[in-house]
Design a binder for these strands. Sequence first.
RNA 1: GGUCGGAUGGCCGAGAGGCGAGGCAAGGGACUGCAAAUCCCUCUACACGGGUUCAAAUCCCGUUCCGACCUCCA
Length: 468
Amino acid sequence: MSSLALYDTLTRTTSEFIPLKAGEVGIYLCGATVQAPPHIGHVRSGVNFDILRRWLTKSGYNVTFIRNVTDIDDKILHKAVHEESPWWAVAMKYERAFTEAYAALNVLPPTYEPRATGHITQMIELMQTLIEKGAAYAPGNGDVYLEVRKLSSYLTLSRQKLDDLLPAADADETFKKDPRDFALWKAAKPGDPSWPTPWGPGRPGWHLECSAMAHQYLGEAFDIHGGGLDLIFPHHENEIAQSEAAGYGFAKRWLHNAWVTASGEKMSKSIGNSLQVHELLKSVRGIELRWYLGSAHYRSMLEFSHEALAESATGFRRIEGFLQRSVEILGTEPVPTISKAFTDAMNDDLAVPTALASISEALRAGNSAITAGDIATIKSSADEIRGALEVLGCDPFDEAFASSTAVEDIGAALDGVIQLALVQRTAARERKDFAASDQIRDGLAALGITIEDTAQGPRWSITGNGSN
RNA sequence: GGUCGGAUGGCCGAGAGGCGAGGCAAGGGACUGCAAAUCCCUCUACACGGGUUCAAAUCCCGUUCCGACCUCCA
């Protein structure tokens, strides 16, 4: 059995993953700033790290997974003005949209999902520590800044030099000792929400939130910190600065997922190439969108196109089709089993594309076994495929994707009706009346129901390509 | 200006000195009354120019093009 190796943005190398505490893993993932509905770039991050979490869990670790919600920030305040709604109502509205998107894609809920505004006390404590240690200062205007020149480790994650950074265009540097110092806390402006602090009323800076929440739930040092590539600077750099200046060990390893791109460019709301999750879910199922988003390596850009998504969904349905046939033949659901090929791929920095190749091989073996009537191979293939799909969060038998009881009742009734038609069709075929048999099949096809004649008799499935 | 990433077949997408990843699409074949499903076969690619090497998509040098970050982006 190979052991898990993961990439680390800090060292830019892949190395064996050794947790701080045997059998336990703590992960902090930067979640959403809830100021707009989620697009597929946001949920790709969720899916990538959900796969990491599931693989760690499958590997026997007890995983504590934190994904925060940034529910106070400039963009939320702007949005509140635009929507003529209280800032907290805006935040809640979009937080729910994210929760629904994650659920539709079978992203497991985090162990804890802290909101920034629920941790103001911890942030104030952290700032007090930083001021006492001489790392931060409150110039008297209500802001609190971190003095970055005092930190030797500053910018080691992004490998930049302080003097090479472009000066901030918008910063009011009146109170800063150095223009690169960043705000831990922002003084309240008239009309903005604020919380009282020893330095005056204000609201948290983005970076401070994550340091405070990571400390609260994972302690002074933890195993993995994750997020999108675009957070390396300044967000993660600043998180390191705050936490290390406070004396914490902080994250031992940094994982960053790459973007979803469209026409080669990063998907973003501002350039208008973003695709909202709920829009895409009108054309594919959640399990199919997840399969697509998870199919590329997490550190590779994923070039989105509707065609690629549709093709990916087609491929997934092939796998599902085999699993369904295996259930019909074996009479039982497959038992999730992890193959060596899948293990080796996942242990190699989550090489999902290589893992998918192992699924393809099992699929071919399984389909051939159906033709050959090789029950043992049908079962072993189905077990292996389901095991892999489970880790990838795309197990069709997962309750998260299961239909409700009411739907199952309708399905049973529908099956009865279609079987009546198929009996007529079989009778027509037996008397070589193919005009009549094709008429029945065409009629069902027009309703989006596809008929396949197999060695075990006709079977039907809803493919949704009907003209209704 | 600084830092970082990328360019692989019709398309998506792995690999990182030698063994044609895989998928989708397309073409052919098997099976079938015809389909569908499935299986088999075909389609031998690595931006460009040098170099290292017995051997380069992979390493080195240079070039072109694309993208990202540089103080509140997943």
